[in-house]
């Protein structure tokens, strides 16, 4: 297994896995989206479901369980799980911090964000805090370049970061609070940061003549 997948502390592999009743329902709904006999197409959403149930990572038993559930060879499911970086094959912390360091974020200062995480949590990228609360990794583009630099924690994006706002977010999480998701500099979503720069007046006032 590649090094890219090993983040976490040594947590014993569970010996059994089974979908919870709620997830079982969810799994059935996912499978129903695919044509009869093509249920194996559901392997990726089901692996994700299993990962969520296991606390952010996929133990071997969970992969095997999903494979059997979809009537496919366990090695085929393992191939999928090991191919995609968003499946974690080793345990991760409660807050899984993924700092984007691809070019747009990097140009906007993602190094500072990463260093802030490392300094604040006392760990290096790819490691987990001893209390099992945080795991920090570097990732490639998460598709939020307009709000660079950014990081993803769990399912949430925290954008327009600086070293200070990064620390604030992490502090809030450490206190058990949920920081506001999205831009951390007061910007509204991906709107221009200093207020609108175009369409600031009505079309007529700008001299646009109505057609016909």
């Amino acid at each position: 297994m590649s090094a890219a997948h090993s983040h976490g502390p040594a947590v014993a592999e569970p010996t059994s896995f089974e979908f919870s009743a709620e997830n079982l329902e969810h799994a059935k709904r996912i499978i129903a989206k695919y044509p009869e006999g093509r249920q194996q197409s559901a392997v990726m959403p089901l692996l994700d479901l299993a990962q969520r149930q296991c606390g952010g990572w996929l133990p071997k038993v969970a992969i095997d369980y999903v494979a059997h559930y979809l009537d496919m060879a366990p090695i085929r499911a393992l191939e999928v799980a090991s191919f995609y970086t968003m499946y974690n094959l080793k345990p991760v912390g409660k807050h899984f911090v993924q700092v984007c360091t691809t070019t747009p974020c990097w140009l906007r200062g993602s190094d500072d964000v990463l260093h802030a995480c490392e300094k604040k949590l006392g760990i290096k990228a790819g490691q987990t805090t001893p209390d099992g609360q945080f795991t920090v990794i570097e990732v490639e583009c998460l598709g939020a370049c307009v709000n660079a630099p950014m990081m993803q924690i769990g399912d949430d994006f925290y954008e327009d970061l600086t070293a200070e706002t990064t620390e604030k977010v992490l502090d809030a999480l450490a206190r058990g609070e949920k920081p506001t998701v999205g831009p951390q500099n007061g910007r509204i979503r991906a709107c221009p940061s200093g207020g609108p720069t175009t369409l600031t007046q009505s079309a007529l006032a700008a001299g646009v003549k109505p057609q016909n």
């Binding site: 590649s2 997948h5 060879a73 090695i75 090991s82 191919f83």
Partner: peptide, 18 residues
């Protein structure tokens, strides 16, 4: 017999017995 698989990807791809 689905006994072999290609795990991980890119440069890390390894043929691995199940």
């Amino acid at each position: 017999v689905p006994a072999l698989g290609g795990l991980a990807r890119g440069e890390h791809l390894e043929i691995t017995p199940a």
